[in-house]
Design a protein around this nucleic acid. Sequence first.
DNA 1: AGCTAATCGAGACGGTACGTCACGTCTTAAT
DNA 2: ATTAAGACGTGACGTACCGTCTCGATTAGCT
Lengths: 214, 214, 214, 214
Amino acid sequence: MAIAKNASRLALESQPSAETKPRGRQRSHACEAAILAATTELLKKKCLRDVTADAIAQRAGVSKATLYKWWPNKNLVALDAFLSSMRLSVDIPNTGSALEDFTLELESVIRFYTSPQGSMFRQFVAEGQSDPEFLTLFRDRFLRSRLDEVRTIWERGVKRGEIRADLDPEIGMDLIFGPMIFRLLVGHAELDDAHAEALVAAAFRGVQKTPSSA
Amino acid sequence: MAIAKNASRLALESQPSAETKPRGRQRSHACEAAILAATTELLKKKCLRDVTADAIAQRAGVSKATLYKWWPNKNLVALDAFLSSMRLSVDIPNTGSALEDFTLELESVIRFYTSPQGSMFRQFVAEGQSDPEFLTLFRDRFLRSRLDEVRTIWERGVKRGEIRADLDPEIGMDLIFGPMIFRLLVGHAELDDAHAEALVAAAFRGVQKTPSSA
Amino acid sequence: MAIAKNASRLALESQPSAETKPRGRQRSHACEAAILAATTELLKKKCLRDVTADAIAQRAGVSKATLYKWWPNKNLVALDAFLSSMRLSVDIPNTGSALEDFTLELESVIRFYTSPQGSMFRQFVAEGQSDPEFLTLFRDRFLRSRLDEVRTIWERGVKRGEIRADLDPEIGMDLIFGPMIFRLLVGHAELDDAHAEALVAAAFRGVQKTPSSA
Amino acid sequence: MAIAKNASRLALESQPSAETKPRGRQRSHACEAAILAATTELLKKKCLRDVTADAIAQRAGVSKATLYKWWPNKNLVALDAFLSSMRLSVDIPNTGSALEDFTLELESVIRFYTSPQGSMFRQFVAEGQSDPEFLTLFRDRFLRSRLDEVRTIWERGVKRGEIRADLDPEIGMDLIFGPMIFRLLVGHAELDDAHAEALVAAAFRGVQKTPSSA
DNA sequence: AGCTAATCGAGACGGTACGTCACGTCTTAAT
DNA sequence: ATTAAGACGTGACGTACCGTCTCGATTAGCT
């Protein structure tokens, strides 16, 4: 099931000691860090498709063999680089209003995804279209946890009675974030704070003309 | 603006009379048709990235040079192939209820986009992430007109008083189709008729617990 | 035996009337002349390998089909162009001394072969190495007659008692012109009037130290 | 000056010790040898023009990229193949008579140049006509040394008083070998032992009717 | 004067080889 | 054992020129 040849980035965090160290030279942390940093740096200038494994290795001052020893391919290096550059867990807004929380969160997400840094998101989704395993990995390692974090907004909203309890949260969340992803990937419309607000507002109020307001 | 070296597919359809034919041998319809057919066929088996220009040419019984003479790259060939295979303009449902129309339409779109044929959509969006010009072209030649067609549902709904008149239709449409695209590209949740219905319903009613129903 | 599809250039000169003209549009002299002129012109700037059939046709304002209708390939066009630009039969020197005649002739030949015009000679020999039929044709249409002309110098020399009668003229002629061709094609040594004189002198006197002059 | 991207063939032979080996994987001797062997083999069947880089690579079981990494084009591969297949330095005859030595040498050279193996010589001269740098390289790497070797015959002849000391050896050598090259490349006359003998004899005695023999 | 052939310009076409690029693997000597 | 360096096989790329072909327009001799 594991695609990555190892737990990659995470491998270095775990195993604080315990097991017997293998003989010979130990895996270099510096080396791995250099690769991830180089990848991040290069991806700010070019898209994933145009960043070559050679370029990463060269920029990191690392041999290509080292790179391929720890990652099965370039995409997974980029994914790790992306993940490692996002460590400081983003905290979810908590203003007391789910509407406001979602608006703030969406604005924040948009700002990130449209930044050079966050534009990697689009590349990953794109790569995923021709590499299902990579798409799965991307979902499991990044999206899932992000969505889980955001779901707390939803749940708080439900608890507070702001959000309909009968609505499948998955559908609710897609309703809020789907349109943003759509615009992000297809580029058919603007994507900024104003739109974030309008989108969340529309998702909340709904499209339908309510009988009362008629 | 034009990326394609010519009007390609469309060039052959238009102007049945009018302008004087150029002097030399005419562009072969058979040749172009063969290329588009071969491309469509190959794309049913493999994803766009894995279909090579050579394979298209060979399967079409056409020389690679001919292919590159009329299209700058295989993505645009695929786009033309996609467009040509969708000629019969899909008609938009018109049941008298916007909610039902959107549900039917979304179901239909989902069925298409998850078919071998329609999965090209995902590939195009993916390619577009590393080729902005292609993304623009894809939007202009395909998405734009599709969205325009669907917008009639919206406008009928507004006229009938089913849909809020104060809501930007662009936002409304993204609300309905964005979540589907999100799921289509990221694959984090199911995508079938039931979900189509739930999505449209949620978009219509909104996420918010209405005071009256409280 | 004929390689060319027709008698080419010569076809237009011959048959002043006689046979019944075929029906339809007649072959255009202007057209052929333009092709030959364009070829000659282009070959002054580039070597035969680098002059394309398209370039010839375009420069001549002629269609490629016309070109290939009358010549089987580019090399034979060039050969005809070469021959047609040399019509005015070069006259062989006749000073009364074979030594002097050969020297003058060799100087003249060297001047021609090292001119832009005459450098086609080298190209023909080169092409001939990978196309034996072309080499044969080149020999038959050009070299043979040139050598025959020059042979009169030899024969006059023999008659006058200047040249050994027991020597095969073919060997004698090769002795005089071979070294020049060698230098022309390989470029390992200078090729000018001085060398022409020295070469002919050496060929005449021989390499051997004569007993008498010892 | 250097055309080849490296010292190629020679690089592997030289410097058995001295400089420290570079760090990485070493250039594969087997790989290079396979390329040269394949080239030699193919050139026995087809002429240089008709031997493709792909064919060489495939037959050598080597990738085209590797081939192009070490040689800028197939001509230089062929040249290296030619040179490597001639290593055992041919020894120059030394019978005590320059006339006989030159005759033997010329016979030997003719036999070689008319063999499948040696016919590459013609191809090289031919290619050189459209690629001056290649011609220079061919002269420098092959012809020069061959001529230098043969010149010892000349010098011994001069010392022994068989050959005129006042004659420029370059002219003398061209006189002996030029006619052979002429015939080799143009094919207007036979090229065998008998002619070798006749040619050398004529070059030695000269064309001129000597007064004494009159 | 119209008919019928052949030629002509334009340029599309199939084919073949080119030389380049990136991928991911493998080899070597050094650490 | 891991590293840097970098050679290697694979396979697709997009380009160039070849020689053939298909058009419609032109230009004659023949009816």
